[in-house]
Design a protein around this nucleic acid. Structure first.
Lengths: 345, 345
DNA sequence: CTGAAAGCGCTTACAG
DNA sequence: CTGAAAGCGCTTACAG
């Protein structure tokens, strides 16, 4: 271990010829200190490069200063933008964010939550709503505020910031229906462990069903959340269901892979096949063709989450937020060709 | 503020009928405690959901547990992957990473560094080598270990994990030279504030000069680090320097934009123009055409950084690491066409 | 193997 | 406006 050589509040007090209490007040509530004393103390603080040891401070004051976030890995850094936004917004309020990104499993998440608390988290941000009740009992018992992100169930008693995933699915499907498509395939993250992706698919099905269209089970391809899985899915789609004229991808990562796969076998997008996806990643407007995508508003999630968790830490009541997704139409989706329609009929 | 309701070490001791010291030992050095006592204590700890308050623990033991990282924003989340890798590797050693992403300026970085220390950082990771000496004096004075990431100067006394950016530039230029190109343009991040991008460009120029080729000043386009800037640069390139057959982009973000820009004006890649870039982002292998890119090994940087900062926190000597970049040839670069050669002669 | 005691660096009523 | 004192929750020699 490295030996430290740090001046303490007592050092400052000794040199300034005042009591430690006065130095403490000079830092935390300067209006309580006489201007001349204050000036002298601040000068010494500056000269010594002194600042309060957070351990001592926390022990005494118990103001919440640390938010822990459990954000499981989802194959690709899906949530990087939200984490960055959250970090920025919390830092602006002098709150520290500590993040744990365990593998995707509820046991690993729960362990990660405990570890964050042991490392000093005063509040917790958790992904999804698939947690054991014991975890919430413990949080309640310790009166630890927490916030759920990207939940898919309607929660009554637990504060959350979520995106209407069903609506997102409906927007995607509706867009393609309006363009005249009737033969759909779907490429998605394995649904079992991802209620958000499952909800998007549910929205897609719902909208298709309203139009009297059934999404055939073998037209649903589950694939790991990687570009390569998207590419590899293309062959299976066209084998399983050659009439496909529209593909819906559960994320832009899949979509870029699918785009690549279609290019490799010589299918043109959108002339032969239309493609719609979710997330509206930063790259989606610049691929060729640019990807039509439903924006899931990651940025807004981060901003609202910071806002709500801070309020919760201050003991305030809070209203959960359901964010509305937004369709961004680009080049990968187009009116179905008459020839394709004929083949189908 | 929320009121807490947490059992302390004293509560555990009281219920177990032992002294607080014994409970502390049961947690930190169980081999010093009699098995029967230990069992009883651990049972109560479990029942009470007790875990030690890190504030109390830190105050007393002064073992380093928190690493702070100052990673300025670079337009896009360039460093997200490295931060995630670093976080994972540190978490595995029970070290907490706290990150600050200030705007790109050395004053903002220095302030961020101080803020991280005030929030409990026991060691610091800093980006680049453009820091005021006062910062290092302060760190030395407090015996705080620190590590520099992505430096471009050769440092003797300061530990760093860096990538050989000049070499990266040379690899890119050399690849295109071998393909017969002689008329180059460059699209890059504004060089003034980005020594890494500047070093890559220096490598490019060096390699070109060895081949007797001069990169014309108006063939160097500086652009903000966004996809759109890459796209917008295309027009300027072809206006400034119509003979261009090869474009080097300082990042894959620019490259995707440039690809898009070239597509929009009807230039084919690589038939008309070859494109080489840096970073080897995850999407680069899946665009159409796939982007030839020099891998800057972000993942390795994160892993090595975690390793070194942990050693430094334990007071160990450490050898700085210079990572070698690696060229990944894909579809965006090709042998120059004879016709293009003729035009140039 | 265990307990009593001191103390880590701070903050905060309390008294003056 | 300031000081003396208590104490936040823990760990760690020290003594037994």
């Amino acid at each position: 271990m490295v030996k430290r050589n740090i001046s303490t509040l007592h050092d400052v007090a000794r040199i300034a010829g005042v009591s430690p209490g006065t130095v403490s007040r000079a830092i935390t509530r300067p209006q309580l200190v006489a201007p001349k004393t204050l000036e002298k103390i601040l000068g010494i603080i500056k000269k010594l490069h002194y600042f309060p040891d957070p351990a001592g401070r926390n022990l005494r004051s118990s103001k919440p200063t640390v938010v822990g976030a459990v954000i499981p890995k989802a194959g690709i850094s899906t949530f990087a933008q939200t984490i960055a936004d959250l970090n920025d917004a919390l830092e602006a309020k002098n709150i520290t964010l500590i993040v744990s990104q365990p593998e995707f499993s509820s046991a690993a998440s729960e362990l990660a939550a405990y570890r964050l608390l042991e490392r000093g988290a005063d509040a917790l941000i958790l992904l999804g709503d698939d947690h054991r009740p014991e975890l919430f009992e413990m949080l309640d018992h310790r009166a630890l505020p927490y916030l759920l992100l990207w939940t898919t169930k309607k929660l009554k008693d637990q504060p959350y910031v979520s995106v209407d995933q069903i609506k997102a699915g409906q927007l995607a499907a509706n867009h393609l229906l309006e363009l005249g498509h009737q033969n759909f395939a779907y490429v998605g993250i394995p649904l079992l462990h991802n209620p958000r992706a499952a909800a998007r698919l549910a929205g897609v099905k719902k909208q298709l069903n309203q139009a009297g269209i059934l999404l055939a089970p073998n037209a649903i391809i589950e694939a790991a959340h990687r570009f390569s899985s998207g590419r590899d899915a293309v062959e299976r789609i066209l084998n399983n269901y050659p009439a496909t004229t529209a593909i819906i991808c559960t994320s832009d990562y899949h979509a870029l892979g699918v785009l690549r796969g279609l290019y490799e076998i010589g299918k043109r997008v959108p002339e032969d096949i239309s493609l719609v996806s979710f997330n509206n990643n930063d790259f989606s407007a610049y691929t060729t063709p640019a990807i039509t995508s439903v924006d899931l508003k990651q940025h807004d999630v981060g901003i609202h989450a910071a806002d709500l968790i801070i309020k919760l830490m201050h003991g305030e009541q809070v209203k959960s937020i359901q964010i509305q997704p937004q369709l961004c139409v680009r080049e990968s989706s187009a009116q179905i060709k008459k020839s394709a329609k004929k083949i189908m009929l």
